[in-house]
Design a protein around this nucleic acid. Structure first.
Length: 251
DNA sequence: AACTGTTGCAACCGCAACTAT
DNA sequence: TATAGTTGCGGTTGCAACAGT
């Protein structure tokens, strides 16, 4: 290969930043194939790329890595992202592990765009739900049922505290870049439909088994999650997944 | 055509966790 | 065990592309 990267930026020792050039991508790919996806600092130096190891790693993981999906996020994937975000919050890398071919960065960007649109839509529909809501610190707590119990709102220990029937939902306002009450109704509108599903899931997850690392046996899918995420296992305790579902079929 | 505002996303930054020595 | 180096993560920024005027 006859790369001119050094000449392109002048023969100085400063690390390059910003958009990657095609030549840099090609060189990075060839050195990853040569040295593997480890020791990024060493790889960066060995490759002659004037990039930090960190930058090389990011470029590889988010763009060059094989099996990455570069098409639009499907409705099925979008649904999974919504459900998992409701459950895990901004744990983008964790969510990304459930969606092979998608990166944490991609999901994070998608969510920000997606939520912004959703909130804009829901702004017009606010006030249609009667939901008990209170704020504790930077958290927003809400309860969708008639079983709302003020005495329980003080606890932060569980997502379901605050409602005696367990239908409460904890939202972190930091997740939405929203901190003041005028937005709470909109959030409520949007998240209300998710809480029921999550509550069911919370209960069912206790009965799940893990495959391989955890129990070395096949998981019993609950009806809901096996529909949403084909072949999924107890995602809170075990990151092992049966990737036989259509969602994992990558071109 | 030129300017301005908005959007989407690639890439960077800071920090915490992990690993090697 | 201590420390330095590396990796992983989430938040943020910068900029190209696009839309509207």
């Amino acid at each position: 290969m006859d790369f001119q990267i050094g000449a392109m930026q002048g023969e100085h020792d400063q690390l390059r930043k910003g958009t990657w050039l095609e030549e840099e991508d090609e060189r990075l790919i060839s050195f990853v194939q040569l040295m593997g996806e480890k020791r990024w600092d060493a790889l960066a130096k060995a490759s002659g790329l004037r990039r930090s190891g960190k930058s090389c790693r990011l470029r590889w993981l988010n763009y060059l890595r094989p099996n990455l999906k570069h098409d639009q996020i499907s409705a099925e994937e979008e649904n999974i992202i919504i459900q998992l975000h409701e459950r895990w919050g901004n744990k983008w890398s964790k969510i990304a592990r459930i969606l092979p071919g998608r990166t944490d960065n991609e999901i994070k960007n998608y969510w920000r765009t997606y939520l912004r649109k959703k909130l804009a839509q829901n702004q017009e529909e606010k006030g249609k739900e009667d939901i008990a809501t209170t704020a504790i610190g930077d958290k927003i707590w809400k309860c969708e049922s008639d079983e709302y119990d003020e005495n329980l709102w003080g606890s932060k220990s569980s997502s379901w505290d605050g409602c005696s029937d367990g239908s409460g939902l904890l939202l972190s306002s930091g997740d939405f870049e929203l901190t003041s009450s005028p937005y709470e109704n909109r959030l409520s509108d949007y998240w209300i439909s998710l809480s029921v599903l999550s509550n069911n899931d919370e209960q069912d997850s206790n009965e799940m088994k893990c495959y391989d690392e955890c129990n070395n046996s096949m998981v019993d899918h609950d009806q809901y999650w096996s529909t949403i995420v084909p072949g999924h296992h107890d995602y809170d305790q075990c990151d092992t997944w049966n990737t036989s579902g259509s969602l994992w079929d990558m071109n």
